[in-house]
Nucleic acid binder design. Structure first.
Lengths: 96, 96, 96, 96
DNA sequence: AACGTTGAAATAGTTC
DNA sequence: GAACTATTTCAACGTT
């Protein structure tokens, strides 16, 4: 009998290869995630505010336009809810 | 002047309603979370191991979910990888 | 024989009561969480930016001081990394 | 003038180093995530059900973890609630 | 290509 | 205050 390569209609060897490759990559990914955690822990130990560092990194990843857009919508809502001083609205402009 | 309903292009009343409804619901949710904490505190006061109780509840939730697992392609793959006992394969069926 | 109320040294009835009460409360909590999701979904359907709404709600929950503090640290770091224009530093003040 | 190492009270060089190290690691992590996506894409191209493969990998991870579960108070409670077959109880042992 | 769904990452809260 | 857990947020994936 030939070595089993198909079971239930699937190519066992190929499937096993796929699963193993992914598991290997996920291990590597997890290792790097652990490294990142270590750096944050070290930073914290040196008195840095890790939450702020995360924010900085996030801002650096976004391009300027994205930052602009997000803050615009948020500010619009805050103004609508009276959380920020109002700017001249379109309506008021027209009325003028 | 009509009552302001739009500012900066947003429907103020609608936005305010959304925010208030969510905040109300989050209050209720927080109240229930407090109740849960109380029950755990009481249990602990009566000598129970709260960590174990948490585990039990989690397991009961998992058991309930696992019932509805789909058992099709997944099982085939698991069998192919030796994670489940094999069934008679198509090939073997043909051979019979 | 009396009805079993202890097994392995545990007060079964009491334990069962605790578990059931918690499960009941967690059901209620899950229901409210679903309601919240519904409100967000409805808001989205009406063209609102749900992420911004989440931010608004978070800001309303924080008091002004908290917001202030967070932004201060972040800005300090951004300045340190040249992401924002510098302010007069302490050192420079001394030098003057 | 000495090279600037502190601004607004923060150690600039150290902060910059932290941020760069994290960004470097995140790049590597993203690269690996891309590799994983490639493997899935290839698998899909070869006719495999990627969703099922994901399930298999998840199950293999769970199996590995469940081995190390603690089996003490938890089991006692599960037995008390009928989630596990009973063992001879202390009382019954005494009775014998 | 937007939508909901799902899984991972991050934050907040709790316990010791 | 450090570790663990739980909740919340964010991103990826398949789907329509």
């Amino acid at each position: 009998m030939t070595k089993k390569t198909r079971a239930g209609g699937v190519a066992v060897d190929q499937l096993r290869s796929i699963v193993q490759r992914i598991e290997k990559l996920e291990e590597e990914k997890a290792a790097i995630a652990a490294d990142i955690r270590d750096v944050f822990a070290e930073a914290k130990g040196n008195g840095f505010d890790t939450k702020a560092i995360r924010s900085v990194i996030k801002l650096r990843k976004m391009d300027a336009q994205e930052v602009e857009e997000q803050e615009t919508v948020l500010d619009t809502y805050r103004r609508a809810l009276g959380m920020l001083p109002e700017m001249a609205s379109e309506d008021e402009m027209e009325a003028a």
